[in-house]
């Protein structure tokens, strides 16, 4: 028995009941409008990358769903189902103090990844799940990379800034401030070059 939980940009997410527990099955579907070489290469590399990174991130102390099964020929991953709500949705109804405390926690988790030289690659509030006990889980590691440089970490922070300004525009400044506060709390002075890179990246690709 399975039901569609979400249809994302690059995959379909199913919720399945198996062995008496709920699981998530993530399937990267074929995209007929892409060149088959590119389509297959992306689906394969991202499925494999996501499995590795979910586990690597957990080793760094970042809560992520555990992986049970992967099929690189079918582009599927079976992992834990995390009961909870996306931070994106919660932001619309949570009180400001709760939201800022969650943002600080989000910043801490991103910092733990960066400390281990991993970048998430798509750190939007859609990819953060808040479980019932207010614990944050990070999901969707398909664009994640290891051996991250200052530049890659700067891009990760830039993407957080971007996500906040497009999706949480009313509270974006406060959320960004709280997120960076949590981030700096973990990394201390080693956060400085990454923060200045974030600002530099924001200015690129624009009229200057």
């Amino acid at each position: 028995m399975k039901q569609v939980l979400a249809k994302g940009a690059e995959s379909v997410i199913y919720k399945m009941d198996q062995w008496g527990d709920p699981y998530v099955l993530k399937w990267r579907q074929s995209k007929p409008y892409l060149l088959p070489d590119i389509d297959m290469q992306l689906r394969k590399s991202r499925t494999s990358r996501e499995c590795k990174m979910l586990t690597a991130a957990r080793a760094l102390g970042v809560p992520t769903p555990a992986v049970y099964f992967v099929d690189l020929n079918k582009y599927t991953i079976l992992m834990d189902f995390i009961p909870g709500i996306q931070l994106k949705e919660l932001a619309e109804k949570a009180s400001q103090s709760v939201l800022l405390s969650l943002s600080r926690d989000f910043g801490k988790l991103i910092a733990l990844l960066h400390e281990g030289n991993i970048v998430h690659g798509d750190p939007t509030t859609s990819n953060v799940i808040v479980s019932n006990n207010s614990r944050l889980w990070i999901v969707d590691f398909g664009l994640s990379e290891s051996n991250a440089t200052v530049e890659m970490k700067g891009v990760d922070l830039h993407l957080i800034h971007r996500a906040l300004e497009t999706t949480h525009w009313e509270v974006q400044e406060k959320m960004l401030e709280a997120t960076l506060e949590g981030y700096i709390g973990v990394l201390g002075s080693s956060a400085e070059p990454i923060l200045s890179r974030m600002k530099e990246i924001r200015e690129r690709g624009r009229y200057h």
Binding site: I38, D122, P123, T124, L143, V155, L159, R162
Partner: peptide
């Protein structure tokens, strides 16, 4: 090189 970073 195929370079997508989030929505950038």
């Amino acid at each position: 090189p195929y370079s997508v970073k989030g929505m950038d």
